[in-house]
Amino acid sequence: MSHPAGTIGPVKILHTADWHVGRSIRGRSRADEHRAVLAEIADVAGREEVDLILVAGDTFDVVAPSAESERIVYQALLDLSGIAPVVLIAGNHDHPRRWRAVAPLFEMGRVTVGATLQRPEEGGVVRILTETGETARIALVPFVGKRGIVTADDLMALDPFEHGGKYAGRVEAILDKLTEGMTSDDVNLVVAHLMIAEGRLGGGERVAFTVEDYAIPATAFGGALSYVALGHLHRLQSVPAPAPVWYAGSPMQLDFGERDDEKGLLVVDAEPGLPATVRPVPLTAGRRLIQLAGTLEELETRAGEAELADAYLKIVVHEPARAGLGDVVRELFPNAVDVLLASPRDIGATGRDVRLGRPPRELFIEYLERVNASDDDVVALFDEMLGDADAT
Score class of each variant (00 low, 15 high):
L77Y: 07
G27P: 07
V328A: 10
G46R: 13
P85R: 12
G348M: 10
W99S: 01
F382H: 00
P85W: 12
H163A: 06
T301S: 13
L299Q: 04
I216M: 04
L299G: 05
H318S: 12
V50Q: 01
D213Q: 14
G91Q: 09
D58V: 04
G204A: 10
R361K: 14
A241V: 09
Y312T: 01
T210F: 08
R358F: 09
V141S: 00
M385E: 12
L289N: 03
E48K: 13
R370K: 15
L201E: 12
E40W: 04
F364R: 07
A173N: 08
E121I: 07
S250N: 10
K263P: 09
P272H: 11
P240W: 07
G199M: 01
K12N: 01
R170Q: 13
D213Y: 12
L80R: 14
G148I: 13
L225N: 03
D310T: 10
I25M: 10
A342M: 11
T132S: 10
T132K: 01
T392L: 13
T392Y: 10
P344G: 04
T132N: 11
V63R: 09
I8H: 13
L325F: 10
D58P: 11
G324D: 04
A67K: 02
I25C: 07
V316I: 10
D58H: 07
A391Q: 15
D310F: 09
L386Q: 11
N92F: 00
G169H: 00
V62H: 11
L341Q: 04
E369M: 03
V207K: 07
M156L: 15
R358P: 09
R23I: 03
R206D: 07
G351F: 07
D43W: 06
R97P: 00
H95S: 14
H318P: 09
A229Q: 05
T277M: 12
R47L: 15
L78S: 12
T130P: 06
G273I: 11
P10D: 00
H20V: 05
I138N: 00
G114K: 01
V316S: 06
V87T: 12
A215Q: 14
D43Q: 15
H34L: 04
A103N: 05
R235F: 05
H163I: 08
V281C: 09
V63C: 06
E198T: 11
V187D: 02
G304M: 05
E362M: 09
L38P: 02
T295R: 01
V239A: 03
R98M: 02
V239I: 15
G109V: 15
A389C: 14
D375L: 14
I53T: 14
R137I: 03
V113H: 03
V55C: 08
R352Q: 14
V187S: 02
L356K: 15
L225Q: 08
T112Y: 14
V111F: 05
T112P: 11
M108R: 15
E180A: 11
L340I: 05
A285E: 07
G273K: 04
I138Q: 02
